Structures are given as C-alpha cells and as structure tokens.
Simulated scan of single mutants.
Amino acid sequence: MYYQSIISFFLFTLIIACSSPEEKAASDIDSNSITTTETTTEAPQKHQNENAFVAKVEEAHHREDFLSKKAIQFDIVLTFGGNERLNGTILTTTDSRRGVITHKNGHKVYYNENDVYYSPEMENPQRIRFGAYTWPYFFLYPYKLSDPGTNWKAYENSMLNDKEYFTQQLTFDAGTGDDPEDWYIAYADKETHLIDVAAYIVTAGGSTQAEAEKDPHAIQYKDYTMIDGIPIAQNWIFWEWRKEEGLTKELGAATLSNIKFVNVNENTFDAPESFSKT
C-alpha cells in the first residue's frame, strides 16, 4: 500500500536537523509532459469521516476539491541550519501515489508508489528515497488525515505558544508504514480550522518510542494562499517542540512558489531506463 511508503517522509524527519545538505538543485519539469489545468474528469474521492476534528479540518482545506485535481506542481527552496537542502521543482499526483522531483542541476527523482528511481549520477540512495517521499508528503499532509491506518484521539493540551487551538493526536495501526509507533499532534486554528502546526516524533533508525519522545519536532504551516479556491501554505518552518514549552528552537524553513494544478499524461512519471532504483 503506497500510503505505507509515502508516510515514511515523516518517519525520518530527525535526520533533517542533523544531516549534511544535499546537492543544490532544481530545474523545470519537461513542459511537454504536463499542462496546467483546473479540474479533471475523475470524480472526487468522497470523504466519509466520523471524526469531527478531521472532518472539519479536511473541509477547511477543501480536500475533495483538491483530490478532484489530477496533479500539483510547485517550486521549493528548503534550508536547514543555514544550508540549502533542496532547490527544485516537485510534481506530485494529488493522491500522492506518483511524483517527480527535478533538481536545479538537472538530476531527477521519480517515485511510483513503493518504487523510487533516480539519476545515476546521484549518490546516497537512502537519502534519495527519504527525500522522494518526505517533501511531497509534508505538502500533502492536510489532505491525508483520514488515510487508511490513521487513528485520531483527543489531545489534552490545546495551548501552543500562548494560542489556543483545536487539537487531536494521530497514531497508526500496527503494520502501517515503517514505524507505526510514531505519533503526531495536529493544531488547527479555531476560526479557520486550517492546520497551523503538526508536532511529531519519529522512531526511524531503531529508536524506541521513549527515546524519540525526548526530541519531538514540529512543522508550522504559514501564509496560506488560495490556489484555484484551495488554501495552500506557501511557507513552512521546522521547530523543536516540547509538550509544555511549545515551539522552542527553529531548525529550518521552506519557501514554496509557482504553485499550480497541472494535468499529466501516462508517461509523466515514467523514469528513464538508465535510472537507478532504490
């Protein structure tokens, strides 16, 4: 199930704060393989969710409208610790199953459900696979709250840095993703119901849940703008997060631009035969 792989973007996030920068990157995706579009002929995925928190958040993010589109593309500049981690263009289907990341230097990474393919000149397949799923999922997160294997429950602390939110905690069914012991806490604005912050732990790399809980992180979504009537955050900030203190230390940031829904053809996500697989 592709969900199991794409969700792994969160499961390795501790690597972000301490790893070295990737090659500086990004170039435009082949314009012959995509065209801008507003809607597709496919019927939107219907959302039936008994959890009022998730239902309101996904309604605020116009989830059904988002899923009625074929694919979305955006430029991203991502930095951690003052170092540029990614400078490129991401194209992903709205259901998260397929995508391609094009780096500034021309290197490309394709993902197709559980498979990742990359330019043979690129090194460190583990980091490549991590990046292929991580950055698109951060973008898609507000539209995937009711994915298979997700479980939501009340979270008692609704305050974060002196602001009160609607909050719930996300856990996963056993066997969901690579690290089902991870958890996330979603903070939704009380007026707009848009996701403002998502705190999380990651148990990747053999860490136990208790060990991971010693260093939880958070992503903050900022500067929502309407793209074809759908609110999308143009800026992300990554933080250290503590249950009582809230957001404590800024770790990194991302700026998104040229966000647009696009149409794709059957060959858009087919990697060249010369590409390596991880």
Rank of each mutant, 00 (worst) to 15 (best):
I195L: 15
V54D: 01
S274H: 12
G81L: 05
T248Q: 09
A132F: 07
G82K: 03
A43N: 09
V262T: 10
D178E: 13
P231V: 06
N87C: 02
N161D: 12
A186E: 07
I34E: 01
S5C: 02
G131N: 14
F74G: 00
V57E: 03
Y3M: 09
K69E: 01
N263F: 04
T36V: 08
R127Q: 12
L160V: 07
Y137F: 15
G88Y: 04
T92A: 08
F12M: 11
D178M: 09
A210M: 08
W236R: 06
W241M: 03
Y2P: 12
T13L: 06
N235F: 05
P142F: 05
Q73W: 00
N157S: 13
T39F: 12
I6T: 04
V109I: 15
Y143L: 14
G206V: 09
P120T: 07
A233L: 04
I15T: 05
I219W: 02
E59Y: 04
I90L: 09
Y141W: 13
M226H: 10
L256N: 02
L194I: 11
S20D: 12
E59W: 00
Y110E: 03
T35N: 09
A210W: 05
D223I: 02
E245W: 03
D189A: 11
H47N: 12
D147T: 11
Y117G: 00
W239F: 08
T93Y: 02
N265D: 15
L14D: 11
T92H: 01
P125T: 09
L91G: 00
V116K: 02
T93P: 05
E123A: 14
H62M: 13
D75C: 02
T278I: 15
N105Y: 08
A271C: 07
S68F: 01
N161H: 08
Q234P: 00
V202L: 04
N157I: 11
D182W: 03
A154S: 14
S257H: 08
H103P: 01
L78G: 00
I195T: 06
K104F: 01
A25Q: 10
L78V: 03
H47Y: 11
A60M: 09
A43L: 12
P231R: 09
L170C: 13
D30K: 14
N157R: 15
L251T: 03
N124C: 05
H107E: 08
K69W: 01
T268S: 08
I7V: 15
T192E: 10
